[in-house]
Amino acid sequence: MLKRYRNLGLSILVILLGIFAIYLVSGVRPDVMLRSIVTSAFGSIYGLSETLTKAIPLMLCGLGLSLSFRSSVWNIGAEGQLLMGAVGATWIVLYVMPNAPKLVLIPIMFLVGAICGGIWALIPAILKVKFNLNEIIVSLMLNYIAIEFVNYLVYGPWKSPYEWGFPYSTKFPTSAQLPRILDTRIHYPTLILALILAIIIYIILYKSKLGYEIRVIGDNIDAARYAGLDIHRIILLVFLLSGGLAGLAGVGEVAGIHHRLRVASGISSGYGYTAVIVAWLGCLDPLLIILVSFLFGGLLVGGDAIQVSLGLPGATINFINSLILIFVLVQGFSNARIPSIRKRKSER
């Protein structure tokens, strides 16, 4: 437990180092930049509300990814799965049951979004299990395909007749718009869903047979095979679940923020990739991931601030994020999570 908090503290240190590197490139003083990030993200009610809004998709994607990384399979496709979730929700709202009442529509929207994200994630899983394909490359390729698919929809069959030919779907009816807290953009149904799911996943992971199996496979795949676990089934299940969670995030973005489907870059600014870092920095622990998501939501919000008020490029924050990931790696708590590597040594 203590080690976790130490890591969390050290990660903040790496942010500081990254900021210094940025100083060398751009000449913006580190303290000025840090103050700008912190005050904009955490220094006001408004900043906090935006941080929380950004944290919602990170939580859901990060939770899903943690399941996959826990079992030592690499789902890097959360970005695409999020987008497919958004597509599923849009399909339900605009083309299946546009007139359904709110209480029916919203749950079904989330359900279908989760299914769409899950199915999208099953593709790399099936290809891995059946053809032994590298799931990292396949899930990444599917991100690019999903982006083009969303763009195809909004430029093609789903382009709204009411939007003057611009690539927008028709606006969602109010019955499909998620309620928000006061005048913030926090679509709280998605947030509550994320928190509940974090607890459920925590229970699955540490208190259920499935969780035990996931952890055994992640820790030592040879031992799992020895014990007669159905590894293929578990890999499929893990991908289905992690894709489903990312799909929920996509539903939250279209139903809670945009209220329509639009071009892919308008829906997600790389949440699926940031979530990889969130999952690892959260030590693949569901509850810690919630906390880390909030931190990274803040970083993303701070990223806008340093762009507007200090003139730094938007990529700056991506750079800081990647440094954090390297730090996570160098700290070695990714190794600790995949002891199969060490096991292999003792086998020799």
Partner: peptide, 28 residues
């Protein structure tokens, strides 16, 4: 990372990709 520290190669590679994308945007 992978030879001296013997860290996870997958994660190291991913972080290198993210580092490159971020840093190149900053410099470029």
């Amino acid at each position: 990372n992978s030879i001296t520290l013997k860290a996870n190669q997958t994660l190291s590679g991913l972080s290198l990709t993210m580092l490159g994308l971020g840093l190149s945007g900053l410099i470029g």
